[in-house]
Design a protein around this nucleic acid. Structure first.
Lengths: 213, 213
DNA sequence: AATTTCATGTAATTCGTTACATGATTCC
DNA sequence: GGAATCATGTAACGAATTACATGAAATT
């Protein structure tokens, strides 16, 4: 039953794909590395982990399970470590391959983008372009509504609209850069197969960089 | 019982302060003029209106109530028009005067800003400055977390962080401009007394403008 | 020894949406 | 007279939070 929000499930699966973790640590990663934009509480995370286990995508391990002798040595006792199962990995690849319209909504998009490192190039392109046209649509609406109501609005409301539109325009420019860069050459790297540690280093800079050209 | 979200209640009260409206229209204003950032559905709005009536802040009027003869003439029949009561007006002024820490969270802030036209200068200042330090706090955390984890992150995650930080920095600059402008001289206009239609025109441009100086 | 941080969970509650149900009014 | 838009509502559900409850490990 239920969807478990998509976004949280997706992010959890993605983070656990990199390495097994327990809930507490997972939550921190969700809120820092990944989640500049989104914070989840324990009351959300723990029940979600339980259902993911139920669905066979994760397994719980106590530290002793894997290495009974080494467990006490490790820095700090990890009570329950969650590890991605084969089925979970498969499920995550599927989610990664989908690029439906939900994928270009604000938070959903950010989550997708955060795992672009594991995403194939064509999906990356579809998501970036989908996001862009979503924003352009939004801009159109904003412009139209602004044209209709301009006179009736006071300075502050107007300024709020203006600033909001500028933010959206700025994100469109950002997407344009990213799309250009993707077009220019980043290698394929389908998300399957090789270990995730061979991070693509064939382009050293940040995705937006076009090198020294 | 209950808080009714603060933000929706606040916005409804604020919009109705300008002029009476029925639910359908209210919702449109919420989602265009005011809500570049936030959309509410009928399933949220109508129940909310009901509780506001219960609390005595609004009264329902059928078009015939106020002017039985003129009602049929008006462009389109308005089924239930909501009007702010004296108590509701008072309550809104109170909300307007509060500048607690909730007021500088993302959506809450936007709602507050949208009604700055009715807000006294000192409260405006407190809200703007509160918002700014809230964002600066957030920037600090982001910088710290970035410094801690920089090496472990792949290009895309890094780029996402970078773009997120830039967005926040940009909003801080925006706030700086607004604060400067406020300091420079916009008149007091306490939210009570005179009719809301004498919108302050002593400064013609948008709030961020510093005129021709 | 006490405090902080790590760690896991549950119950009640809040906020809001979707889908449904209904009907009037305007435009073609 | 049929479609689109205006207009009002409700019931079921969804997603996530807060407050609570508990306890172990590390730090001072």
């Amino acid at each position: 039953m239920s969807k478990r929000s998509g976004i949280l499930e997706f992010a959890v699966l993605g983070l656990l794909r990199e390495s097994p973790m327990h809930g507490y640590e997972l939550r921190k990663r969700l809120n820092t590395s990944l989640g500049v934009f989104r914070a989840f509480s324990y009351g959300t995370l723990y029940p979600c982990l339980k259902t993911l286990v139920t669905q066979g995508w994760l397994i719980e391990e106590t530290a002793a399970d894997t290495d009974p002798s080494a467990a006490p040595l490790a820095g700090r006792r990890a009570k329950i470590v969650y590890r991605l199962t084969a089925a979970g990995k498969e499920h995550f690849e599927e989610l990664l391959a989908h690029s439906g319209p939900d994928a270009w909504e604000d938070e959903h998009f950010a989550a997708r983008f955060a795992f672009f490192g594991q995403t194939s190039k064509d999906v990356r392109m579809r998501v970036l372009e989908g996001r862009r046209s979503r924003l352009e649509e939004r801009l159109e609406k904003m412009r139209a509504s602004l044209a209709r109501t301009r006179e009736r609005l006071d300075d502050y409301t107007l300024e709020l609209q203006r600033h909001g539109m500028e933010s959206v325009e700025r994100e469109v420019r950002w997407l344009n850069e990213l799309i250009e860069t993707e077009r220019a050459g980043r290698s394929e790297r389908p998300a399957t197969g090789r270990d995730h540690n061979d991070n693509n280093q064939e382009n050293g800079g940040r995705p937006g960089d076009r090198g020294t050209a």
